[in-house]
């Protein structure tokens, strides 16, 4: 009987073992990391908004405080997205002809709110609260990045659960004095303005503010 398989089949069979291992290994690595890739988390992806509102202009340029617009960030779970009335405090006076602002003016006339595209959106089964974080000295910048440099809003963190836990387990790596929460360019320093290590300062603040974040499931999944 003629040979069923050519001589090379043996080598082929041996190589296939390696190939399978490599393919499975690569596949698993990709699979395990899909939730961390920015394709799925949208980190660093700026979204088109109905009005190209620039935090860079308004915070760095005009010098507005976050709380001017995000009014409830200190008292409530929700930071608040400002209504058009807030914009119109200025834009009824300046840039009144700007075509980019037409949706604002129209919304102001008709009363239909602007539909901003949400950038940070936790699943509905997660409970998040801004006020506690702000009060325990977690800066906006720690979670939202350098908002004052963003011409359009994007995420700098994945908002994955591991990200929340990373800080809930070791808050001393992230806390800052309460007064600095809204400071976008803060670096660890003592009262006199000398640079100190975050480890030292953090440990002190954790004590001062009595910080003890919970990692119980029911903290975030109520």
């Amino acid at each position: 009987m003629a040979q069923l398989f050519p001589r090379g089949s043996n080598a082929f069979a041996r190589i296939s073992i390696v190939v399978v291992l490599v393919v499975v290994g690569t596949g698993l690595t990709i699979l395990l990391n899909t939730n961390r890739l920015h394709y799925t988390t949208d980190v660093q992806v700026a979204r088109k908004q109905p009005v190209p509102f620039s935090h860079k202009h308004h915070v760095t340029g005009v010098g507005l405080d976050c709380r001017y617009c995000h009014t409830s960030v200190e008292e409530s779970s929700f930071a608040n997205i400002p209504p058009v009335e807030t914009c119109m405090t200025c834009h009824s006076q300046i840039w009144t002809e700007s075509p980019l602002l037409e949706p604002i003016r129209e919304s102001y006339r008709t009363g239909n709110p602007i539909e901003w595209v949400r950038i940070h959106d936790l699943p509905d089964f997660v409970y998040f609260n801004h006020s506690i974080h702000v009060h325990k000295g977690i800066g906006c910048q720690t979670c939202h990045g350098q908002v004052d440099q963003m011409p359009l809003m994007w995420k700098v963190n994945t908002l994955n659960m591991e990200w929340c836990l990373e800080c809930h387990r070791e808050p001393e790596k992230f806390v800052r004095p309460r007064e600095e929460v809204f400071n976008m360019a803060w670096t660890p320093m003592d009262e006199r303005g000398h640079a100190v290590s975050q480890a030292l300062l953090g440990a002190q603040l954790v004590q001062d503010y009595d910080i003890n974040p919970s990692t119980d499931c029911s903290t975030c999944h109520r």
Partner: peptide
């Protein structure tokens, strides 16, 4: 059990 993004 695998190192997932929930770190649980």
């Amino acid at each position: 059990p695998y190192p997932n993004t929930m770190s649980v």
